[in-house]
Computed example of a mutant assay.
Amino acid sequence: MSKSKRELREQRRAAERAAVVAESRRRRIRTLLGATGVAVVLVVAGIAISATGGAKAKPVAPSSASKLVAGIQEHNGVLGDPKAPVTVTEYLDLQCPICQQASTANLPAFINTYVRTGKVKLQARTLSFIGPDSVTAAKVAHGAEQQGKLWSFIETFYASQGEENSGYVTTDFLTKVADAAGVNAKQAIDFSKGQSAQSALDQADAAAQTLGVNSTPSFTVSKNGSAEKVIAVGLTDLTNKLNKAVA
């Protein structure tokens, strides 16, 4: 039986969407491979796991991950003293394994040295180009942001991060992450379904496009309200780059 024009049109649109996602991932992998040897290990490992079915998310439990930002004020997704003269912005994707590595290996010392002392405020812009799970996660993250808990949500999510686009970012998983991060899960998920959450994603995407950011994590710096400048991509010498940028 021949397919109708509508069926053919929907099939073509689905193929086009899949091609966009695949190309975005290929571009991200090429960039990250060039940025750091650590990325080689993580990305190749991720591909190998994916090819064999892969593990999904780690079990979510009350986590110590959010202790990194405990006691630091947060406003509109910006961590630290609002009067701090320097703003460092991280462009991240919650599914990105390199972002998780940066969070573990590089950010703790930076936060303790610069953010807790009031010298720097740290902003997060959640992108969502890895795939559908990234979109879902980013929207709920913006729900956590409304409660002043974005960074706690991010750190807790990373602690249970699963295989990219394996379907692990379910309502149940996000509820457990939110609960462990001290976020009102129902409110965050309800917010994620509204236009405000989508607008936040659109704004982050627009800012990334303006700066030419096409891989995660990418870091920018702005001093005393100046325009953002990209200072680091990936993990290569990230700590030193951050330290020099805010010195």
Rank of each mutant, 00 (worst) to 15 (best):
A197V: 00
S226R: 09
A232G: 09
F219I: 04
D205V: 03
A232M: 08
A197M: 04
V230G: 01
N214S: 15
A206Y: 06
T220N: 13
I231L: 10
N214E: 11
S222L: 11
A232H: 03
S226D: 15
V221S: 11
G234H: 01
S222Y: 04
K223V: 13
Q198A: 02
A204Y: 07
D205F: 07
D205L: 06
Q203K: 13
L238A: 03
N243V: 14
Q198G: 00
S196T: 00
Q209A: 04
L211K: 05
K244W: 05
L201I: 07
A200K: 07
P217H: 04
G225W: 08
K241I: 05
F219H: 06
N224E: 15
G234R: 02
V230F: 02
L211S: 06
S215C: 05
A208R: 00
V221I: 15
K223I: 11
N243E: 15
A245S: 15
T220S: 15
N214R: 00
V221N: 09
L235K: 04
A232K: 01
S218A: 11
A227D: 15
P217K: 02
L242E: 06
Q195A: 14
A200M: 04
N224D: 14
D202H: 06
L242D: 05
P217V: 03
L242G: 10
A197N: 10
K241A: 10
A206T: 05
F219R: 03
D205M: 05
S218H: 02
P217W: 01
N214L: 08
G225S: 09
V230M: 10
G234C: 00
T236N: 11
V213H: 01
N243D: 15
I231K: 06
K244S: 15
L211H: 01
K229G: 08
N243G: 12
S218W: 02
D205K: 10
L235E: 08
A227L: 12
F219D: 05
V233F: 00
L201K: 09
T236H: 09
G234N: 05
A197P: 04
S215A: 14
A204I: 02
A200T: 11
Q209M: 06
V233S: 09
G234E: 00
L242C: 07
K229T: 15
L201R: 06
D237T: 01
L201P: 03
S222R: 09
D205T: 01
A207W: 01
L201S: 09
A204H: 03
A245Y: 07
E228M: 12
I231T: 12
D202W: 01
S222H: 06
K223N: 13
I231M: 13
Q195P: 11
T239R: 12
D237I: 03
Q198D: 06
S196P: 08
S199P: 00
T236S: 12
V213D: 01
D205C: 04
K244C: 11
N243P: 11
V221W: 08
S199M: 12
V230I: 10
S226K: 08
D202I: 02
T210C: 00
K223E: 10
S218M: 05
N224K: 15
V221G: 07
